[in-house]
C-alpha cells in the first residue's frame, strides 16, 4: 500500500533557486520579527530585576525626584481603550447592521454605497490628520461646552472610537455578512426584514465575531500613539474625571524619548514597550481563539 503523497518525487531542479530566494525572504522576515520580540523583552528585563523604589511599578512619575512609575500610564491606556471601545463598538455594530440591511430587497441604495465607501476611506485617514483636525475643532468645542482645557480623556476617547470604527465595521461585516446571507432567503419568505433577522437571529448567534470586533478595536485604541499624545493632555496622573488630563503608555513613550536622555526614564520606556507588546499579544491570542481575522 502506498500513499501518493509520499511517493511524489521532487520536481525538476530548475527553478529551485527561485524557491531558495523565497525561503530567504521568509527567513529575513522571521529574523526581523524575532529580533523585535527579543530586543523588547531583553531591554525591559533590567527594570524587573532592579525593583525597589522609583522603579516603573509605582504610581508616581516625577523624574526630578527620581520617581519613574508608569502605573498611571498603564491605567490610562487601559481606561482610554475600554472607554473608547464602548461607543466605538456600538456605533460600529449599528453602522454595520445599517449597511447590511437595506430597506428594499438586498440592493444597497446610493446612500448606503456612499457610506460604505466612506468607511473604507476612513481606514486610510492618517491618525495624525484625525488628531490635527480634533485639536482645532473638537478640543475647543469641549472647552467651551464642558469646561476644562479641552485636552482631556474625553477628547481622546471620542477620537479613538472614531479611529477604531472602520476596523470594527469591517470585521463585523466579514463575520455577520455570510451568516445573514445564509438566512436571508428563508427569513424573507417568513416576512422578516433583514434588520429583524440581524437583531433576532444573526447577532445572538455571532458572539465570537462581536467579541473579536471589540477586542480588535480595543487593540487599535491602546496601540495608537498620536491621538492620545495630541488630545489627552498628557498629565502623568490617573484621570479623576472624563474632563481631566491623562497620559497613555504610547504617548508616554513618545514624550520620554523627546524629553529625557537616558537612565531610569529609559527603563520605564522599555517597560512600557514590553507592556504594549504583551497587551497586543493577548489581543492576538483572543482573536485567534475566536477565529476572527485581523
Amino acid at each position: 500500500m502506498r500513499n501518493a503523497e509520499v511517493s511524489i518525487r521532487p520536481g525538476g531542479r530548475s527553478g529551485e533557486a527561485g524557491l531558495a530566494v523565497i525561503r530567504l525572504a521568509v527567513a529575513l522576515a522571521m529574523a526581523g520579527m524575532v529580533l523585535l520580540f527579543l530586543m523588547v523583552v531583553a531591554f525591559a528585563l533590567p527594570a524587573f530585576v532592579q525593583g525597589g523604589g522609583g522603579g516603573p511599578f509605582s504610581w508616581s512619575w516625577a523624574p526630578g525626584r527620581g520617581e519613574f512609575g508608569i502605573l498611571p500610564m498603564v491605567a490610562g491606556s487601559l481606561l482610554a481603550g475600554t472607554l473608547a471601545v464602548v461607543p466605538g463598538w456600538i456605533m460600529g455594530l449599528c453602522l454595520c447592521c445599517w449597511l447590511m440591511a437595506p430597506e428594499c430587497a438586498g440592493r444597497p441604495g446610493p446612500w448606503r454605497t456612499l457610506v460604505g465607501a466612506l468607511v473604507r476611506v476612513m481606514t486610510a485617514i492618517p491618525t495624525v490628520v484625525y488628531g490635527f483636525a480634533a485639536v482645532f475643532l473638537l478640543a475647543p468645542v469641549i472647552r467651551t461646552g464642558l469646561g476644562g482645557s479641552g485636552f482631556s480623556c474625553l477628547t481622546a476617547v471620542i477620537m479613538l472610537s472614531v479611529l477604531m470604527l472602520p476596523t470594527v465595521v469591517l470585521v463585523l461585516q466579514a463575520g455577520l455578512g455570510p451568516r445573514l446571507d445564509a438566512v436571508a432567503l428563508t427569513g424573507a419568505a417568513m416576512g422578516l426584514s433583514r434588520m429583524e433577522l440581524l437583531w433576532h437571529l444573526v447577532i445572538p448567534a455571532s458572539r465570537g465575531t462581536l467579541i473579536s470586533a471589540a477586542v480588535l478595536g480595543f487593540g487599535r485604541a491602546v496601540g495608537d500613539t498620536m491621538l492620545p499624545l495630541m488630545l489627552a493632555g498628557n498629565a502623568p496622573v490617573m484621570p479623576s474625571s472624563l474632563l481631566s488630563s491623562m497620559r497613555t503608555l504610547t504617548a508616554h513613550m513618545a514624550l520620554v524619548t523627546s524629553n529625557e536622555v537616558g537612565g531610569a526614564a529609559y527603563d520605564s520606556l522599555f517597560m512600557a514597550g514590553l507592556l504594549l507588546l504583551v497587551i497586543n499579544g493577548a489581543v492576538s491570542l483572543v482573536i485567534r481563539r475566536l477565529g476572527g481575522r485581523a
Binding site: 480588535l216 504610547t250 507588546l277
Partner: peptide, 8 residues
C-alpha cells in the same frame, strides 16, 4: 505583527 502598535 499586524496588530503591533507602531510605536513598538
Amino acid at each position: 505583527l499586524a496588530g503591533m502598535p507602531s510605536i513598538v
